[in-house]
Amino acid sequence: MSLFLGTHQNKLDAKGRVSVPASFRAALRKEQSKENNPLIFRPSHKMPCIEGWPLSIFSELTNSLNSLDLFSEEHDDIATTLYAEAWPIDSDREGRILLPDILKEHANLTDAVTFMGLGTIFQIWEPSAAAERCKTARQKVQQKNLSITPQSNIKRIES
């Protein structure tokens, strides 16, 4: 599985297109060569940003819906949150994607965007909001003394 790493800033053109960072495109080529699928873009339900999901990772996330009763209110609410504003988007030959207006509005995007790698997914932010998010996340990790171990356990660091 390829990872999306780093923070990258690009311009949004007049048509609403933006170039996906080269390192992200390389990660996507590895992922898409397995299935040749588009990326899934959706508004974050927690933050004012857009989430970019390889289809295989998005499918893993949505598989958990199968554990809920298809006709339950919980299933309906989660399915609506995940699918109703999700957009499958392919990039063009130059590695650009066309972001739908609803997604640009959710993230307050105008002329510049920041791509933030989050491992198996990435986010697209308005640049000043991205900088603030990084700062806040770093502060929270420090305040809570969080760390991650090689066994994939998150723990508090004892001082």
Rank of each mutant, 00 (worst) to 15 (best):
W53K: 07
I57R: 05
D76E: 14
R25T: 07
F24I: 04
D90F: 08
D90P: 01
L99G: 04
I89S: 03
F24M: 10
T80D: 11
T81L: 15
E73G: 03
I78R: 00
A84L: 11
S59Q: 13
S33P: 00
I40N: 03
A26L: 13
H45R: 05
E60D: 14
Y83V: 06
A79F: 10
A86P: 06
I97V: 14
L68V: 01
L98M: 13
D92E: 08
P88F: 10
A86W: 07
W53R: 09
A27V: 02
S59F: 01
S72N: 04
R42F: 06
E51C: 04
A79L: 06
I78F: 00
F24N: 05
F24Q: 09
P38W: 02
L39Y: 02
S64A: 10
I50Y: 06
R29H: 06
I50N: 06
A26I: 11
K46H: 06
L70Q: 06
A86T: 07
E74W: 00
Q32N: 09
G52W: 01
C49M: 12
K30I: 13
E31W: 08
P100Y: 04
F41L: 15
L65T: 02
K34W: 00
K46R: 11
C49G: 04
L99F: 06
I89T: 03
